[in-house]
């Protein structure tokens, strides 16, 4: 085997493509409008980005195991609504309401996982149905109206999750650190632990994995729970940061998150995943969203871009796969 130079090995990594894409994108947008890289713009973009990002991290692991979860968007809206409803009704404190919301999300993840692993229904369809169930529940609890939220200053929960402070001209929220911590933790799990190997094996060749004694079902159920809990957490963080709780919020997030994961290089069919790639994918999409608005393209056109990028990345992966296989 020849010794590849460091540069060559870097280029061969699946994350290289997205990295280049991100750099080009930032350059282009900055070229159009120098405000793009202003501290204020960056801070604003970053705040919401990490919330979606938390979901994308969990989704990376789930997709590596070969499954999708489309209910995350509805959980993003449902959980804070549940938390605030309980709080406003005086049933519990905010903190306990938070825990309840997370537990309910975990339960929903369990149900998702059970349907997929025991009844062998495609995860896409199960979670699509669950999306509607959860959304409907959110609407039901609130009668369709946004919940009252008090400014959560002073609550230690809010401080821990979304306390903000300034570093120079940048406004940073605590959620950024949570995101970084989650990224590091999940990245390690995926690449350096046995559990990560289980996930990759289960996604790459579930029969072979089972033959080796991997409990593929248990792993997948766990990942569904992780995905739901992360979505729930992200929703609560967002709600505390913006002091709002709208039952309809989160609509459409699931596809955007999947797009982030796919663009980052995780295989759609499972078996291979990269957290670094997902982080890049998160940035690429959010920068795109922010950038096109700044340029003046109608925000509604964002969907078209996302769809085109998803298709483009899928085509690219598919082409690379075939080149690889033709080479053997």
């Amino acid at each position: 085997m020849e010794n590849h130079s460091l540069i060559q090995r870097l280029i061969a990594r699946p994350e290289f493509g997205p990295f280049v894409l991100l750099v080009v994108e930032i350059a282009v947008f900055w070229g159009f409008n120098h405000d793009f890289l202003s501290p204020q713009n960056i801070s604003n973009t970053l705040a919401f980005t990490v919330e979606l990002g938390l979901i994308a991290l969990a989704m990376t692991l789930l997709m590596t195991s070969g499954e999708f979860d489309l209910s995350v968007g509805s959980l993003f809206g449902f959980s804070p609504v549940l938390m605030w409803t309980l709080f406003n009704a005086g049933v519990t404190s905010l903190e306990v309401g938070f825990v309840v919301a997370l537990l309910v999300a975990a339960l929903i993840g369990l149900v998702n996982g059970w349907f997929v692993t025991q009844l062998k229904i495609p995860s896409f369809l199960v979670t699509l149905g669950m999306l509607l169930v959860v959304r409907g529940s959110a609407l039901f609890i609130t009668d369709g109206f946004p919940q009252r939220t008090w400014s959560a200053e002073g609550s230690w929960l809010a401080e821990a999750l979304v306390g903000d402070f300034f570093i120079g001209p940048f406004r940073i929220y605590m959620s950024l650190f949570w995101f970084i911590a989650a990224a590091i933790a999940l990245g390690y799990v995926l690449t350096q632990s046995r559990t990560g190997n289980w996930i990759q094996a289960g996604g790459g060749n579930p029969n072979a994995a089972r033959a080796r004694g991997v409990n593929v079902n248990r792993v997948k159920i766990g990942l569904f729970v992780l995905s739901s809990v992360m979505a729930s957490l992200a929703g609560v963080i967002s709600s505390l940061r913006t002091s709002a709780a709208n039952p309809n919020s989160g609509t459409g997030y699931e596809l955007e998150v999947i797009a982030m994961v796919v663009i980052g290089g995780t295989a759609l069919t499972g078996g291979r995943g990269t957290i670094i790639g997902t982080v890049l994918g998160i940035l690429i999409l959010r920068v795109m969203r922010n950038g096109i608005v700044l340029i003046g393209v109608p925000g509604l056109a964002y969907n078209i871009f996302i769809g085109a990028i998803i298709l483009g990345m899928m085509a690219l992966h598919s082409w690379l796969e075939r080149r690889h296989q033709a080479g053997t």
Binding site: S193, R194, N197, W198, A201, G204, N205, A208, A209, V214
Partner: peptide
Amino acid sequence: FAERSVLANLFVNREPVHNGLI
């Protein structure tokens, strides 16, 4: 597992683990 390395294939689910890391 076709996409994984030979080494990974040899030790699927039997990887020696130190402190939680392979």
